[in-house]
Amino acid sequence: MQITLDNPAGAPQPLSPYYSQVARVEQADGSALLFVSGQIAEGATLAEQSRGVFETLAALLEAHGASLAEVINIRTYLTDITELEQYGAVRREFLTGTPPTSMTFEVSRLFRPEARIEIEIVAAVPGAG
């Protein structure tokens, strides 16, 4: 098994030098698992922040030959669970296939005070064969 930690050049860069955005775990059959660190985004509303996060996640996956269609697990952290419906509407715009496994949490605060949402994902990338 080979593990590569990465901050892809073509994707938005991390907000801190203390973590890698993607851990790629190569499997024996040529497939890979991508573990993507929690992402936040700017925006005045939860919908704007959610959209920005999904766009960043898509760019990180694309840098590893994947897309949001390969997401198998998603963990969402909200600072106000009453906004879950607003987040869900944006999520459905980006995750259009069979829904991945999922957990959603309400937290008191996130890494940046203005952040209202943080999302981390796991994606399974099929092998070339």
Rank of each mutant, 00 (worst) to 15 (best):
I3R: 06
L5S: 10
D6A: 12
D6T: 13
P8H: 10
A9E: 10
A9F: 09
P14Y: 00
P14V: 02
P14K: 02
L15W: 00
L15E: 11
P17N: 10
Y18H: 11
Y19C: 13
Y19M: 11
A23N: 10
A23F: 01
V25S: 04
S31Q: 03
S31P: 07
S31Y: 03
L34Y: 05
Q39Y: 12
I40V: 06
I40P: 05
L46G: 03
L46D: 01
L46F: 04
L46V: 13
A47Y: 07
S50C: 10
G52F: 01
G52C: 00
G52Q: 02
V53M: 00
F54V: 05
F54L: 05
T56N: 11
A59D: 07
A59R: 13
L60C: 07
L60K: 08
L61Y: 15
L68T: 08
A69Q: 10
N73R: 08
I74P: 09
I74Q: 13
R75L: 15
T76N: 10
Y77G: 00
L78N: 07
L84R: 11
E85F: 12
G88I: 03
R92G: 04
E93V: 11
E93F: 09
E93R: 12
L95M: 12
T96L: 14
P100E: 02
S102K: 13
T104Y: 10
T104R: 06
F105Y: 15
E106I: 08
V107E: 02
V107C: 03
V107N: 00
R109S: 15
E114T: 13
A115C: 06
A115Q: 08
R116E: 01
E118W: 05
E118C: 15
A124N: 09
V125R: 09
P126D: 04
P126H: 02
G129F: 09
